[in-house]
């Protein structure tokens, strides 16, 4: 038995996600910002996070995007293997939804050709990651990813001898070097293992995990806690003005890798850690 879904429904869903994800933070991110505010003692850090929190209400009331950088559209698809997609081309349907959402929602079109820097004028193409899963549903996750934080992200092919200490050093150095640039408080997504192209994907997916949730593996959960504590002692603070709120969370995803390699990727998200999902 297979179930059918028309690409028109996918386009409509993407349009809605593009607009709503740019105007409203996920609850876990909003709650983490409030917790960070309550944990601050430095007056400048307090007022800075107060303004970041106030911005959420203004964006909602005024129907404005939270940030003028409404990102590159990153779309994760979990396609049930019993699902049949009908009525047209899936990739085209997604890009059509992106173009529609960024136009209707008065969102900034930030996508240019890499060398000539010519704007595509509708924020397409999206970066699309597909995964085939059991079932007959389609889960779409829409992630508007800003350029400033993306620029501060890093990939290293460490020597396996670097070990856990080398991994920690690389992650903390990436955050330290980024400093105020990626708009802290940040979310730190880490991918360890896989290979040269898979580690960064793991890091990006790690950004989507609910803040406050615990990693399945106990050792990884402990490593996340240790890294978050170390990062929040760097004193970069909200917007780099100092204080305890450099990061809201460190999320690590792992995958087995070749015994000659140790890939580590750090993908940084700004405090406007936007993402929204829908299941069709």
């Amino acid at each position: 038995m297979s179930r059918e879904i028309n690409v028109k429904d996918i386009t409509a869903a993407i349009t809605n996600l593009a607009i709503s994800s740019n105007r409203k933070l996920p609850d876990d991110v909003a709650n983490a910002l409030t917790a960070a505010r309550n944990n601050e003692s430095l007056p400048l850090a307090q007022t800075t996070i107060d303004d970041i929190i106030k911005n959420q209400q203004i964006a909602a009331d005024q129907k404005l995007p939270l940030c003028q950088d409404t990102g590159m559209a990153v779309v994760f698809l979990e396609i049930g293997q019993q699902l049949q997609i009908t009525g047209g081309d899936l990739t085209e349907a997604i890009n059509c939804g992106v173009a529609q959402g960024y136009t209707d929602g008065y969102l900034r079109k930030s996508i240019v050709s890499p060398l000539k820097r010519e704007n595509t004028n509708d924020n397409t193409p999206a970066v699309i990651h597909t995964n085939i899963v059991p079932g007959d549903k389609l889960k779409i996750t829409f992630v508007p990813k800003g350029g400033g934080a993306e620029n501060m992200s890093r990939l290293a092919m460490l020597k396996p001898s670097a070990g856990i200490e080398g991994i920690k050093r690389f992650i903390i150095d990436a955050v330290r070097e980024a400093g105020p640039n990626p708009c802290p408080p940040i979310v730190v997504g880490v991918g360890i293992g896989g290979n040269f192209e898979y580690a960064p994907l793991l890091a990006k997916q790690a950004l989507l995990r609910t803040i406050g949730s615990k990693a399945d593996d106990e050792d990884i959960a402990a490593l996340e806690t240790e890294l978050l504590t170390a990062i929040n002692k760097l004193n970069i603070g909200a917007q780099g003005f100092g204080g305890k709120s450099t990061a809201l969370a460190v999320h690590i995803a792992t995958a087995p890798c070749h015994f000659a390699t140790l890939p580590v990727a750090v993908n940084i998200n700004c405090h406007v850690a936007r993402h929204q999902s829908v299941i069709l």
Binding site: K54, Q62, L64, P65, L66, C67, C183, Q239, C270
Partner: peptide, 13 residues
Amino acid sequence: FAALGGAAALTAQ
């Protein structure tokens, strides 16, 4: 000067 990164709806006001 730094303005508030990511608090862009607030700055618009």
